[in-house]
């Protein structure tokens, strides 16, 4: 069968491969090369070595954005996963109205980042002005917590669905056996259910972690980095380096930042997958 299939390989893999080459491989390789160049368009690139990287590390705004992104991601990953897991526990108890609750909690996930950002910008600004605090454009603390609330609102439903699927896959005889052996509900949760849903935890931390690091739309729509770049996350910082400034020195630096950002995201997701995969149990 393999040989017969191989004869048709152009039909089966070529369309996807060509689009993939145009949409990912070529831009990726060219981007990696351009990070070593000075350029304003792709045509006028001039090789300059690692100068862009040195200047990227010297950019204090880039480092601030890095720490802001880390602070945001750590808190949002923890909050989203804990709350989503609690929601999933409540929704697997066969309560009345479970379907309605599930539908409602998942709903924000379908709304795009830009629209979500504006909804919460309006809402948060109204609340801030009612309590007499400075609005989002002047208030970095509110911007930070606003982003976290927004991401919780958007992602808890999604992660909850994954946790529900995980919890429902835990066989009943396991929990029953634990109860017969005298385990309290808390012990059953921590010692039986939690290890059994470890694959769901792996996926959810992976998704929330990468979503947190890569966050762009919500950042742009909610705070746009205001006040004075204090709420600018890495992805948005790179975007601004590329498009908000003119001059031959910026685009190369932006591309160097993008390469660093890419290495960072890939490395973190590999580490995370390795760390949580090792805790998964086989049934």
């Amino acid at each position: 069968m393999e040989r017969a299939l191989k004869r048709w390989s152009p039909l089966f893999i070529l369309p996807t491969f060509l689009a993939f080459a145009i949409g990912f491989i070529y831009p990726f390789v060219e981007g990696a090369y351009l990070s070593l160049c000075q350029f304003t368009t792709v045509r006028d690139a001039k090789f300059i070595g690692f100068g862009n990287y040195i200047r990227a590390f010297g950019d204090s705004q880039f480092l601030d954005s890095f720490w802001f992104t880390v602070a945001f991601t750590v808190v949002s990953v923890a909050l989203i996963n804990v709350i989503a897991f609690l929601f999933a526990l409540m929704l697997t108890k066969n309560l009345k109205g479970t379907n309605i609750f599930r539908t409602v909690f998942f709903m924000p996930n379908l709304i795009g980042g830009i629209v979500l950002g504006y909804i919460w910008q309006i809402l948060i600004n109204c609340v801030l002005s009612l309590v007499g605090k400075p609005l989002l454009a002047l208030n970095a603390t509110a911007g930070y917590w606003g982003l976290i609330i927004l991401m919780c609102w958007q992602q808890i439903g999604y992660m909850m669905i994954i946790y529900i699927a995980g919890l429902q896959a835990v066989p009943d005889d396991l929990t029953e056996a634990a109860q017969i052996d005298g385990a309290t509900p808390l012990q059953t949760l921590l010692r039986v259910k939690l290890p059994m849903v470890m694959p769901s935890i792996t996926i959810c931390t992976f998704l929330t972690l990468t979503n947190g690091f890569k966050l762009f739309d919500q950042n742009l729509a909610l705070t746009a980095g205001e006040p004075n770049h204090a709420t600018e996350m890495l992805a948005y910082n790179i975007y601004n380096t590329f498009y908000a400034r003119s001059g031959p020195q910026w685009k190369g630096m932006g591309q160097a930042k993008a390469v660093l950002f890419c290495i960072l995201v890939v490395a973190i997701s590999m580490l995370q997958l390795k760390a949580t995969r090792s805790r998964e149990v086989q049934q």
Binding site: T210, F216, I238, Y239, V259
Partner: peptide
């Protein structure tokens, strides 16, 4: 390509 952030390739 699922993990690589869009910023890496956006300009090119």
């Amino acid at each position: 390509s699922m993990v690589v952030p869009f910023q890496m390739v956006m300009f090119t």
